[in-house]
Amino acid sequence: MRVRFWGTRGSIPVAASGRTIRKKVAKALRLAEGRRFGTEEDLERFIDASIPFPVRHGYGGDTSCIQIEAGDRYTLFDMGSGLRRFGQQVMAEHGPDRPQEYHFFISHMHWDHIMGLPFFPPIYIPGNTIHVYGGHAVSMLQEAFRRQQSNPCFPVYWDQLGARIVFNQLETDRTYEINGFSIRLTDQSHHGGSFGFRFERGGKVLVYSTDTEHKLEDDAQTDAAVSFFKDADLVIYDAMYSLADMVTVKEDWGHSSNVVGVDLCLRAGVKHYCMFHHEPACDDDMILTNLEETRRYAEIVGEGRSMTISTAYDDMVIDLS
């Protein structure tokens, strides 16, 4: 199973400003001062070895969209703005004449999780089939997508789409077999409701849990999250806020914290905790600092327990093998 991140930002897409790019260029030039590069390979090696990740790459600005590569049909979490780039890739790979089947698992229908669909070319092509799964009622799922592609929000209306689009409501007390995955979902605390997904295949376990505000005082919620994450190989978790923000000014905004993710994942025996849904106000340096601090927190509270911690970035790939 391979996990490919097409969009990792929370709430709204962001792009680096000219000022930010200028600062990155200045940092890179300083680091390269006095050096000569005989070949392109020399230059590439220098970039990888000597330019910090926030300068040479950054974390990206597209909103939630993650592809799970396994089996012969496309499987994705959410349809944030990152879906646009995924659509470009599949169009380049297959062109318009080879019908494909796509399976999307939608955490919820807030804007940043569905805004990529109007820019996903396969929806306009007859012959394609798009399955949309979620914990919300089919009527709510449909309404969200219809509204998004209706006047005055978008010029191409829902009824003009060429693909066959099938909505499916999943229930939290069942296990589903879809695309070779064994799938469960769980209720999460978020305005309008959201759902986390647990996918199992070939002995590997992946959990996608975003847009969830973990109420620390709610023992039942904590126990349910630990049980849902239990022994997962990878948990992709909403780490949008600092804990102080989460319990003060941003209380009830529907998101969790980097350190809460550590505590839950350590208790659940998770192997790899991936921080996700980055605060749009955070620049690349701040996201790296958050990662380093989160690792340090895990080192302190982990008391010798080992857990990989990463922070998601657009185009990141994680192999679960």
């Binding site: 600092s242 804990l243 102080a244 923000d245 003060t248 914290s257 350190v259 601090e293 989160t294 340090r296 927190y297 302190i300 509270v301």
Partner: peptide, 12 residues
Amino acid sequence: AEIFKISRFDLV
């Protein structure tokens, strides 16, 4: 003290 700083509790 590190945990307070990481969680930003040192600010509140």
